[in-house]
Design a protein around this nucleic acid. Structure first.
Length: 424
RNA sequence: GUGGAUGUAGCUCAGUUGGCUAGAGCGCGGGAUUGUGGCUCCCGAGGCCGUGGGUUCAAGCCCCAUCAUCCACCCCA
């Protein structure tokens, strides 16, 4: 074995690709239904976009980016997430000049340099939405319900929705100061990691799993008790809209998100059957992002869903996506002459829309039948010397084993009758 | 970046205290049926035992290194 796929990357092979196609198809359907439109941005961007957008002190920017210099000496980074690119595109293309809000969705690969583990890869795939230029809490609820609707359509009904508000530029700094003060007072009980986080990123202390830290966190001031009036109102309204939609949620004041641009609403959908990486999708509002990477103050909200994690979640629950594989017809040939006749027939059948296959390995009749069986062929069309002489073909129903010989001139018509295909 | 586990056939895995040509099941190919799949039976192909060193008369097994995979931490999708 000479080559491996690079660490943390995966080949997606048949029949798994069918699942991916199904997910993509459903995504297009459902997102369209909510009137979100697809946007496709580059896989790489100038590094600075992510540094500014995601935040210099985040883990992503500090240690997880695939950054390189191109031949022109520019610093380029493979996108680690989708939102910064979408907002950049929105601003660059002056979409703000059109009727608002703008509702986009995207689907594609993202890249982060991390040690792979269950549910985490260096190249992974997200589908996500962004609703830009409105601060309406109804949109927060719409985004969340859209994600839940997608999961529901895949058969996932029992995932936990965690909801929080992380405040805004007004109230968060005040809260962070308060939290810092509290943490410093209880510093002795915190793990080393958290001690150093008090100054660097105090919100992160909140989701430390260390037991001793947990006991400190339990009585720490909660962001939800320290929101300014407008943030508190927004948070209440989001909950009200979620209630209207009958969506269950868990208020989780400890939920913080690792990207700097989040404001107000933050949410994660977790599947506790998943292990350490249990967030299937997560997102929130990012009212400060556009100003950070552009010059306009534009609100926005979105989520990103990890396709690999969605697949893991389905697997954990033994849910099979309704994907179909196999062929309608398999042509079994006996002899060189029959192969040549059949090759024309193969083409005609395919032109009529039948998924049709033939042997390319010169194998025995038995083996050809076996192949037909393995491909789940509905019918096998057998053509040998007898049939050649009669200008006919023998068709065999692979389920019942029934066979009959029919004239080649009637074959196309006959197969239309027998094979249930709506588009034929 | 840190820690733990694991690398033997296409896949899942056996392989004893180191001891002759390295095994099974499944899958794959052929045959039993000179033109018929699923069940059964027979035969067959396919292994630098992850890689490189070392110890030994002798290494799949012991030691070291290295690479890869998995899991966890950090953090996130």
């Amino acid at each position: 074995m000479k080559f491996n796929a690079p660490r943390g990357t995966n080949d997606i092979l048949p029949p798994d690709t069918l699942k991916w196609q199904y997910i993509e198809k459903k995504t297009h359907e459902i997102f369209s239904n909510y009137n979100y439109q697809e946007i496709r941005t580059p896989i790489f961007e100038y590094t600075e976009l992510f540094q500014r957008g995601i935040g210099e002190v985040t883990d992503i920017v500090e240690k997880e980016m695939y950054t390189f210099e191109d031949k022109g000496g520019r610093s380029i980074t493979l996108r680690p997430e989708g939102t910064a690119s979408v907002i950049r595109s929105f601003l660059e293309n002056k979409i703000y000049g059109q009727a608002q809000p703008t509702k986009y969705y995207y689907i594609g690969p993202m890249f982060r340099y991390e040690r792979p583990q269950s549910g985490r890869f260096r190249q992974f795939h997200q589908l996500g939405v962004e609703a830009i230029a409105s601060n309406d809490p109804a949109l927060d609820a719409e985004i969340i319900s859209l994600g839940m609707r997608l999961l529901q359509d895949f058969g996932l009904n029992d995932l936990e929705l965690h909801l929080n508000s992380v405040g805004c530029g007004e109230c968060r700094p005040t809260y962070v100061d308060k939290l810092k003060k509290y943490l410093n007072e209880n510093k002795e009980q915190l793990c080393d990691n958290c001690k150093s986080r008090i100054d660097r990123n105090p919100l992160r202390v909140l989701d430390c799993k260390n037991d001793s830290c947990q006991s400190v966190i339990k009585d720490a001031p909660k962001i939800t008790d320290n929101l300014c009036e407008s943030c508190a109102d927004h948070f209440n309204d989001v909950q009200e809209y979620l209630d209207i939609l009958n969506l269950d949620y868990i208020i989780n004041p400890l939920l913080v998100r690792g990207l700097d641009y989040y404001t107000n609403t933050a949410f994660e959908i977790k599947d506790n059957a998943l292990g350490a990486q249990d967030t299937v999708f997560g997102g929130g509002r990012y009212n400060g992002l556009a100003e950070e990477i552009g010059s306009r103050d534009l609100p926005g909200i979105g989520f990103a869903l990890g396709i690999e994690r969605l697949l893991l979640s389905l697997e954990a629950k033994d849910i099979e996506l309704p994907v179909e594989s196999g062929v309608d017809l398999y042509i079994t040939v006996i002899g060189e002459q029959a192969k040549k006749e059949s090759f024309k027939l193969l083409d005609q059948l395919r032109n009529k829309g039948f998924i049709t296959e033939i042997d390319y390995l010169g194998r025995s009749v038995g083996s050809q039948m076996k192949s037909a069986d393995r491909m789940n062929a509905e019918y096998t069309i057998i053509i040998g010397e007898n049939e050649l002489n009669n200008n006919s073909a023998t068709i065999r129903n692979m389920k019942s084993g029934d066979e009959k010989e029919i004239q080649l001139s009637n074959l196309l018509e006959e197969m239309k009758q027998l094979v249930d295909k709506e588009d034929i």
